[in-house]
């Protein structure tokens, strides 16, 4: 809990330290995608079910919020509540389908479900305006300035991270991690494995929905791209890069991906290629996440300098870490 507090204080000081609006906007994006990654981490990292269709939840929430607040003229709070509710409901429905299976089949089904929702956003032009997407008008009130938006995103993301931290230490959170590591033992012990996965999945959809609202408020525009496999995959990449099932991993991963994307966009429009290469790099070189991976690689380097024989031992340890993760 304490590191989270320190992080929030540091993040709250950001607007004073960053040299300009542009950097603040990037910090805001990190928070938005960070929250999205937190939602993926809840189901993938803590419950062991990797979803490749989570962008659907971000997208449904974003579209619902935009359509209700602009199209139907609902007040912000009502549109927000409705978007969160609708997305959780979708999650509850998708969960019934996807959780008939687990492992790779779960991953494939969530991917297919995500693409189906993407297809709707793309093809159902009457509702979604198709490829052209939907825009929100210029903001008013506190959101007029980047700083106000930043603090709003910070409050929501930090709140959700606090919720996840409390959850993962609770009995239910322990049960989720037990289901991830030993599903068979868990049911023998009297836990309803399916129900635990289901609750995690729906909660994760709810968090993704919250990130969808922040996404809308930040970018003020949504198109089918927000629901694409690329966005779902980026979230999984963020979580793995930061470390599966860790508190701050998703935020770290989000910072990495958002920064790289912004830096890369100055030099090349080959982002998908770069994304693919980062995927391969993380998976092959530092599968346990960037920080532990860097620590291991440094250790191996040192060991090579001191005594070449230790490398094997380090590699064994790394593969054990990876093995425990699987």
């Amino acid at each position: 809990m304490k590191p989270l507090l320190v992080l929030v204080v540091a993040a709250a000081a950001m607007p004073l330290l960053l040299p300009g609006e542009f950097y603040l906007a990037i910090a805001t994006q990190v928070l938005v995608y960070g929250l999205f990654a937190v939602s993926v981490n809840l189901i993938a990292g803590y419950c062991g079910m990797v979803s490749l269709g989570h962008a659907a939840f971000l997208g449904i929430s974003g579209y619902a919020f935009a359509l209700l607040s602009v199209g139907a003229g609902w007040p912000i709070w009502a549109a927000t509540t409705a978007a969160l509710g609708l997305t959780s409901l979708t999650g509850a429905m998708f969960g019934l389908v996807a959780l008939r299976t687990s492992g790779l089949s779960f991953l494939m089904i969530t991917l297919a479900l995500g693409q189906i929702v993407w297809g709707i956003a793309f093809r159902y032009v009457d509702l979604t305006n198709g490829e052209n997407g939907i825009s929100l008008p210029r903001p008013d009130g506190v959101l007029l300035h980047g700083t106000g938006l930043y603090y709003l995103c910070l409050a929501v993301t930090a709140g959700c991270m606090l919720f996840v931290t409390v959850l993962t230490r609770s009995p239910l959170g322990a049960a989720m991690q037990g289901v991830r590591d030993q599903p068979r033992r868990m049911s023998t012990l009297g836990y309803d494995v399916w129900a635990i996965r289901y609750v995690s999945y729906v909660l994760s959809a709810l968090l993704a929905a919250a990130s969808g609202i922040l996404y809308m408020l930040t970018f003020r525009f949504i198109s089918p791209h927000a629901l694409s496999l690329t966005v779902s995959s980026e979230a999984v990449l963020m979580v793995i890069a930061g470390g599966l099932g860790t508190t701050f991993g998703p935020l770290l991963g989000a910072a990495l991906v958002v920064l790289l994307k912004n830096v890369a966009s100055a030099y090349t429009d080959r982002w998908p290629t770069l994304l693919g290469l980062i995927f391969l790099f993380i998976i092959v070189v530092v599968p346990e996440g960037l920080l532990p991976g860097a620590r291991r690689l440094l250790g191996a380097l040192k060991a090579r300098v001191v005594a070449p024989d230790n490398i094997g031992a380090n590699l064994t340890r790394a593969s054990r870490i990876e093995g425990a993760r699987q």
Binding site: V50, L52, G103, L104, L107, T230, S233, V236, L237, I240, R270, W271, P272, T273, L275, G276, L277, I278, F279, L280, I283, V284, P287, E322, Q326
Partner: peptide, 23 residues
């Protein structure tokens, strides 16, 4: 190279998919 690591294999092919499509 990723033998025995199901998740890594899937995500590896996903990364490849992005690269192929972009190229």
């Amino acid at each position: 190279r990723l033998a025995g690591r199901e998740l890594a294999q899937v995500l590896g092919t996903l990364g490849l998919a992005f690269i192929i499509a972009d190229q």
